[in-house]
């Protein structure tokens, strides 16, 4: 069955605390941190972007399980922050992991769910026999305008998954999606920062689509929340995934391993991929995982995953690359001035 052959995550080492951002804008940091459930967020280094993080995540995946580079037939990078408007991130990733030239590649954009859309595409290519392995990446150096609510959470990171059907560490039993034209968050061509509909991004957007895909998945699989060991939901903050999990009937214990947002922030396209990675870091054979992403605009992709014996076998070395927990540890904290420099918010002449 088609599934995850190997995976890897990447998170930059820099952090800024929610209270430090609030200090600059004269807001109550403790109140905002408690409201969002986000204490701090990751910040990219001056020379990091979606391409560099995607390469590091893919290399970590290949360190855990070495697969023939000429068997990688497709690479898709999902992001809202591709460094080029025209020139594929995926081709650079392919070159950097030595998978070129006999492969197809493309960049995806669907707000925060482009990474899970990439997983679905790779599943289709593998199932149809068009490729042996496909690489799906979700990564972002997320943007949030200075002083905007998004600035408290927009962070950086990503994860890569190699999809195939040759002894996967986790089988993807089923996937389904729920999509509608809902303008809750957007960024027009040439604009540096995204715009959003404020509270409109809640009920008619995030909650409607996440619940829509989640209900569809459980209906098609004939499952209930108690059939799953773990669940991962898109995490723009800690409040939304906790609330939607409770609405669907999942417990806080089920979502805890995959909820990285309190210490990571919202990595946009990287959010659910990092949540899946964090869960696979601790998963055991037989564990049943429920996943639902969300991308503004709007849509959700759901996945039903079962971890296999391969995750603890000789073909896979989980400790060959850092876990999400290890990547989150030992962050280096920046003040707002250095953060602004790292994010390119200071215009230099």
């Amino acid at each position: 069955m088609v599934g995850i052959i190997t995976y890897g995550a990447y998170i930059p080492r820099y952090r800024i605390k929610t209270e430090e951002i609030a200090r600059v804008w004269g807001a109550n940091g403790a109140e905002i941190a408690a409201g969002l459930g986000v204490k701090e967020k990751s910040v990219p280094d001056l020379d990091e972007d979606t391409i560099t993080m995607s390469v590091e995540a893919a290399r970590s995946a290949l360190a855990r399980r070495d697969i023939p580079r000429d068997a990688i037939g497709a690479i898709y990078v999902g992001s809202e922050s591709h460094p080029y408007a025209v020139k594929p991130s995926s081709a650079t990733v392919g070159e950097a992991i030595c998978a070129t030239p006999v492969m197809t590649a493309a960049d995806y954009e669907f707000a925060c769910k482009a990474g899970t859309a990439a997983i679905q595409t790779c599943m289709g290519l593998v199932k149809s026999g068009m490729v042996k392995y496909g690489c799906a990446i979700g990564a972002d150096t997320a943007q949030g305008a200075p002083g905007d609510a998004l600035e408290y959470t927009a962070s950086a990171g990503g994860a890569a998954f190699f999809i195939g059907n040759d002894n996967p560490i986790a089988e993807i039993n089923h996937t389904c999606s729920y999509t509608s034209d809902t303008p809750d968050f957007w960024r027009r061509e040439g604009q540096t920062y995204p715009s959003h509909g404020g509270r409109f991004s809640g009920d008619p957007a995030y909650f409607k689509h996440v619940q829509g895909a989640a209900h569809l998945m459980m209906e098609q699989m004939g499952t209930t929340p108690s059939d799953y060991d773990y669940a991962i939901f898109h995490q723009p903050n800690a409040k939304f995934p906790r609330k939607v999990a409770a609405m669907l009937g999942f417990t806080s214990t089920q979502i805890k391993p995959g909820l990285a947002v309190p210490r990571l922030g919202n990595t946009y396209s990287g959010a659910v991929p990092i949540g899946i990675s964090a869960t696979l870091d601790i998963a055991k054979p037989g564990d049943h995982i429920f996943v639902t992403s969300y991308g503004s605009g709007a849509g959700s992709d759901a996945f039903d995953i079962t971890v296999t014996d391969a995750i603890e076998s000789d073909v896979f070395n989980r400790s060959a690359a850092p876990t999400v927990e290890e990547l989150l540890a030992n962050g280096k904290y920046l003040d707002y001035a250095l953060y602004a420099k790292h994010k390119g918010k200071i215009v230099m002449q």
């Binding site: 280094d45 020379d47 990091e48 972007d49 391409i51 560099t52 390469v55 590091e56 290399r59 460094p83 080029y84 650079t92 950097a96």
Partner: peptide, 20 residues
């Protein structure tokens, strides 16, 4: 080794990646 940006030629030029 890590994969990083080496140089970006202004806002419109090519971005050079490489090893640091």
């Amino acid at each position: 080794r890590v994969f990083r940006r080496i140089i970006a030629e202004g806002n419109g030029g090519v971005i050079v990646y490489g090893t640091k």
